[in-house]
């Protein structure tokens, strides 16, 4: 009787430990899962991190979308960083180039990595970059000023109710 009880207890403990282990695995599985969900739904405004290779041939000139640019520099990176134009009006499918400018205000060579984010989130998958300074990390010599180009287009299947989208870049300090 007592041994039966102990065996039953042991079996249940093993099952419960599996639940605990499963929950721990689930916690770490949420990391890639989170990225996948965000990539599929565009939830946190992430854009393509490598160059878009297919450029559209058709420009939808019946629609016009405003793209705004904002920039920020995270603590620990002694740079000035701003877009040369605050916003542009583009037609979906039209390839546009805009310039940002970064200046290293410190007396050492520093590298930075720009991280983009698009609002509203549902538009983020439709802002396609052909060329971007954010694809690689940027290194500036002391006092150097650099023009940073961005070539992008808005894909034609952008949801009809989006008339304005905001592209934000934050420059983070990066390892040399």
């Amino acid at each position: 009787m007592k041994e039966d009880q102990e065996r039953a207890n042991k079996q249940l403990v093993i099952k419960l430990v599996w639940i605990v282990a499963g929950a721990l695995v689930f916690a770490f599985a949420l990391v890639p899962l989170y990225d996948v969900i965000c990539a599929v739904t565009g939830l946190n405004g992430k854009t393509n991190s490598t160059a878009e290779l297919v450029v559209p041939v058709k420009v939808d000139s019946t629609r016009e979308v405003t793209v705004q640019f904002i920039s920020s520099v995270m603590p620990g990176l002694g740079w000035n960083f701003f877009p040369l134009e605050n916003s542009v009006k583009v037609h979906p499918g039209q390839v546009t180039t805009v310039l940002f400018e970064a200046k290293n205000t410190t007396s050492t060579e520093v590298s930075g990595q720009a991280i983009p984010s698009v609002t509203p989130g549902k538009a983020s998958a439709h802002l396609k970059k052909i060329e971007c300074f954010c694809f690689v990390k940027q290194t500036l010599k002391p006092g150097e000023v650099k023009k940073l180009p961005l070539r992008f287009f808005i894909s034609a299947d952008l949801p009809q109710d989006v008339h304005e989208l905001t592209l934000s870049y934050s420059f983070f300090p990066a390892a040399q």
Binding site: V20, A21, A23, L24, F26, A27, F28, L30, V31, M74, Q113, I115, S170, F172, P173, A174
Partner: peptide, 25 residues
């Protein structure tokens, strides 16, 4: 509780072991 344990462990490795679970850069 294991999910919390996982989250704070990620925080710990972000702080000391160079991981970037919560670091946008």
């Amino acid at each position: 509780i294991p999910v919390l344990a996982g989250a704070v462990t990620m925080l710990l490795t972000d702080r000391h072991f160079g991981t970037h679970f919560f670091d946008a850069a």
